[in-house]
């Protein structure tokens, strides 16, 4: 349903995405893994039209979207939960969710979805009438995800949902992401946390310095020696000594 074809995105003269391609089929949860600065967030921002691609094509549900504005892309059915959450801090929790449903006008359905989000995140129900700025980091992440669901997206894109959360909260959030996927929403997940992402992904890409380095099903990714060494801290330098790699000796 989403096909990204060799896109290149620049920040000024700096090329951040170098011929990146990606495909997400209906019903999949695709994870894009990479370190800080690999270009993962830029990839999502480019799909959303926030930092438009200079070259390449993006196709969503058979329609070219690389020239569209973010508000139009949202209306086409992609919902992005950005890194840093971007919640509306001086609106209440309830108002934030309502803004997530801004493109819809079916009051009955919106009410059902409030209920759905609140039962998914009970912590939010208790704070429905409070200003969202008063929420804790974990609750803000929950609110951001809940708000992203309120538009009933055809594709949900999550940018680093684990960022800044405690390990317990990370597990909780990933459990919920998994259940959202199982309930039928395709997800494009961008993460640094390789280990936990591989437990829920149906397909994965590894990104390095603006390029797709590796792709495949999680089993294949996890079997890769480099991935084991660099992302999971296993391998103990058997494959190639870390020191030598830094010195450029392969």
């Amino acid at each position: 349903m989403l096909r990204v074809e060799s896109i290149e995105t620049f920040y000024g003269k700096l090329k951040v995405l170098v011929g990146v391609s990606l495909e997400l089929k209906a019903g999949q949860l695709v994870a894009v893994i990479g370190a800080n600065g690999a270009g993962k967030s830029t990839l999502l921002r480019t799909i959303m039209g926030i930092t438009p691609a200079e070259y390449g094509t993006i196709e969503f549900l058979g329609r070219r979207i690389e020239e569209e504005d973010p508000d139009e892309i949202t209306r086409l059915g992609i919902s992005m939960v950005p890194e840093g959450r971007w919640i509306f801090t001086d609106l209440t929790v309830q108002e934030n969710l309502d803004m997530g449903a801004f493109t819809r006008s079916d009051r009955e359905g919106i009410r059902e979805d409030f209920e759905r989000v609140y039962s998914m995140f009970p912590a939010l129900r208790a704070r429905a009438r409070q200003r969202a700025g008063l929420l804790s980091g974990g609750e803000q992440q929950m609110l951001a995800i809940g708000r992203g669901l309120m538009s009933r997206p055809k594709l949900l894109m999550l940018d680093e949902p684990s960022l800044g959360l405690s390990p317990i909260l990370v597990r909780e959030i990933f459990r919920i992401i998994k259940s959202i996927h199982q309930q039928g929403t395709p997800i494009l997940l961008v993460e640094q946390n390789m280990a936990i992402s591989m437990t829920i992904a149906s397909y994965a890409y590894v990104m390095e310095t603006g390029r797709m380095r590796l792709s495949g099903v999680p089993e294949k990714i996890l079997a890769d020696e480099d991935v084991r060494e660099f992302y999971l801290g296993e391998g103990k330098g058997k494959y190639v000594s870390r020191k030598d790699r830094w010195k450029g000796k392969m």
Binding site: M48, I50, D69, P70, D71, T74, R75, S79, M80, P82, W86, I87, F88, T89, D90, L91, M99, G100, F102, T103, R147, S151
Partner: peptide, 11 residues
């Protein structure tokens, strides 16, 4: 409050 986030809401 947050212009870019508002774009992402389809506003």
């Amino acid at each position: 409050r947050h212009q870019l986030a508002a774009f992402l809401m389809g506003i």
